[in-house]
């Protein structure tokens, strides 16, 4: 499937500051504003693969919430798929957000335990007014795309393993063929071999849908496989931005240097498996 406007801008954030109001004091009478994102600017072109890299508390997930139309920023402009999303009334925002696919962080907690897998994956299609048989067709296609057996459609999530749950989440995120795919730590809850399967799967899907893909992760090595360009976030500020290979080879900011250095594991001569050379 190709998209006419695949070179268009998928996301643009200009000087965005956002945060949360936190209850303060014994009776929670006062509310304090805690700023998480501080003047973040970011551009993602259509069809582009971008990673947002940062440690816990750097504002990665908050950034995704802002893009998803779930958290109104205090300052700055947010343009998603050509719309200033916060200028649209909240009730109408789904018209833009239905063109987004989202894979939340923890597969073990992100699936409704009372719904069968088939119903979970059908949900994003509910506003598209498709005939029933086409809906079923699309759900089957999505399940096939994530390499699950059709029999899982009749299961409840509790019967699935972590890797299978993650695939169901991905199927739900791509069933409506989104133009923008947002992934929040898509592999951090998985084992290494399952992680590799999911990485290969996501790249296959991105290539097929030609969608923009934004991956939020704390793992530079994983990002290497899921993105071409990276934005490094530290305490809510973008400290470095550029081609991922370039950042890995020649990190400019102090924080990026620390990140890259932490992968050499502090050994001067690590035993490199023969298959890597």
């Amino acid at each position: 499937m190709s998209r006419a406007g695949s070179t268009d801008l998928a996301v643009e954030l200009r000087e965005v500051s956002a945060g949360y109001f936190v209850a303060e004091g014994l009776k929670a009478l006062r509310r304090k504003y805690v700023e998480v994102l501080r003047g973040v600017s970011l551009r993602v072109d259509g069809g582009e693969r971008v990673a947002v890299i940062g440690e816990s508390g750097s504002g990665k997930t908050t950034l995704l919430k802002v893009v998803l139309g779930l958290l109104q920023p205090m300052r700055g402009d947010v343009v998603v798929l050509g719309h200033r999303i916060y200028d649209i009334p909240e009730r109408e925002r789904w018209k833009v957000t239905r063109r987004i696919g989202y894979v939340p962080q923890d597969p073990f907690r992100a699936l409704n335990p009372r719904l069968k897998v088939a119903d979970i994956i059908t949900e994003p299609l509910s506003r598209l007014h498709l005939p029933e048989d086409e809906k079923e067709e699309r759900v089957r296609a999505a399940v096939k795309m994530v390499q699950l057996h059709e029999s899982v459609l009749n299961h409840y999530p509790s019967r699935l393993s972590g890797g299978m749950m993650q695939r169901v989440l991905i199927a739900r995120a791509v069933v409506h063929e989104p133009e923008l795919l947002l992934l929040d730590e898509p592999t951090s809850a998985l084992d290494v071999s399952t992680q590799a399967q999911v990485i290969n799967l996501l790249n296959g899907i991105q290539e097929r849908l030609k969608c923009a893909m934004v991956t939020v992760t704390h793992d530079l090595a994983v990002a290497q496989y899921l993105a071409d360009r990276a934005v490094i976030l530290y305490k809510g500020v973008v400290v470095e931005e550029g081609p991922l290979d370039e950042i890995v080879r020649n990190p400019k900011s102090e924080h990026a240097r620390v990140l890259v250095a932490s992968y050499t594991l502090g050994v001067s001569n690590p035993p490199i498996p023969a298959s890597f050379v």
């Binding site: 390499q147 393993s161 890797g163 299978m164 084992d191 290494v192 071999s193 399952t194 992680q195 590799a196 399967q197 990485i199 290969n200 793992d219 530079l220 090595a221 994983v222 290497q224 496989y225 890995v248 080879r249 890259v260 992968y263 498996p273 298959s275 890597f276």
Partner: peptide
């Protein structure tokens, strides 16, 4: 063991990640 080694993403070394279908049995 070879699958475990070759499915780990390593920073600075880009190679296809090797996977064998399936997951460990419960």
């Amino acid at each position: 063991t070879s699958m475990l080694i070759e499915s780990v993403p390593v920073l600075g070394i880009k190679r296809p990640l090797k996977t064998y279908a399936g997951e460990p049995p419960g």
